[in-house]
């Protein structure tokens, strides 16, 4: 999984929604600390926060918020979710498991210092990974399969854009599906997750385009368009737009119980803005 692209657009958000979003972020951090020791809090990401938002939006009840103190800054007071442990626990497990597999990947094909760094972290993550796997075997197997499929796709030097994005897309599709038992919702989440995952993979590939050309790394866009990014920027944009369109179509059919404005902020403003800034290098604001 790739990190850092799934962010909300604060300027388009109501204050109360942003407070709720922040509270979920802080609650996830707290959950990581509770289940996987204080150190694991450093892997907190917006992507997994979004997974927590999705999980919470589908739950039957939400406990509301309470005020607590931030562990990193004792002077700061934050809002936290009162309970909803299950959803947060799933998001925490996803954080741990995806970082674990990222480390495994880096050890397999990273540079010397990268490898060294990953080896140092590995002992911690092995323990946490085992714990997360025991709790949510379905999340673990989804990410494990992604890691394996990705490795295989990248060995194919003629790999298509769709094929390269498929492992990440399938993974997110699976981890979102486990959030509900309702068959209809599962179908919707399956499509929604697939295209969101595809977008995440492709935006990262678009972001790394120049870098990958230089270093000769695997990148499906480079395979399709060579080193001529400039004249294919429209194609890249269309492929990303297509993912977001499908995402929105699926989301429109999904009945969420809360936090709909946060999710819509992401789909309407957060992701398109990110896409624009990556493709056209516009300054973010």
């Amino acid at each position: 999984m790739v990190f850092g692209f799934v962010t909300v657009d604060k300027s388009e958000m109501l204050g109360k929604d942003f407070d709720a979003y922040k509270a979920i972020y802080c609650s996830l951090c707290k959950q990581l600390g509770k289940e996987y020791t204080f150190l694991s809090r450093f892997i907190l990401s917006y992507d997994c926060t979004f997974y927590a938002v999705m999980a919470l939006s589908l739950e039957d009840s939400c406990s509301g918020f309470c005020v607590g103190r931030c562990k990193f800054n004792p002077l700061k007071k934050c809002n936290y979710l009162k309970s909803n442990e299950e959803s947060l626990s799933k998001a925490a497990a996803l954080s741990i498991i995806s970082v674990y597999y990222k480390l495994v990947d880096n050890i397999a094909d990273g540079g010397f210092f990268e490898k060294l760094y990953c080896y140092c972290l590995m002992p911690f993550f092995s323990v946490w990974h085992k714990k997360a796997k025991k709790k949510f075997p379905k999340i673990e197997s989804a990410v494990a399969q992604m890691s394996k499929a990705q490795f295989e796709a990248e060995r194919d030097i003629t790999c298509s854009i769709d094929k390269a994005a498929d492992p990440t897309a399938t993974m997110l599709s699976k981890v979102l599906q486990i959030l509900t038992d309702n068959e209809e919702k599962r179908r919707i989440l399956s499509a929604y997750g697939y295209f969101l995952g595809k977008w995440i993979y492709l935006i990262d590939a678009a972001n790394d385009y120049e870098d990958d050309v230089k270093k000769g790394n695997f990148n499906p866009y480079v395979i399709a368009y060579g080193d001529d990014k400039a004249s294919h920027i429209k194609d890249i944009n269309a492929s990303l737009d297509h993912c977001l369109s499908e995402c929105l179509l699926s989301y429109n059919l999904l009945e969420v119980k809360r936090f709909d404005r946060i999710i819509e902020n992401l789909l309407f403003y957060g992701l398109p803005k990110k896409q624009k800034s990556v493709l056209y290098k516009e300054n973010e604001k």
Binding site: A238, S239, L240, D241, H242, L244, S245, E246, L248, L249, L267, F268, Y269, P272
Partner: peptide, 10 residues
């Protein structure tokens, strides 16, 4: 139509 994403004319 889907390859052009413009939700709510934004």
């Amino acid at each position: 139509a889907r390859r052009h994403y413009n939700p709510s004319g934004y």
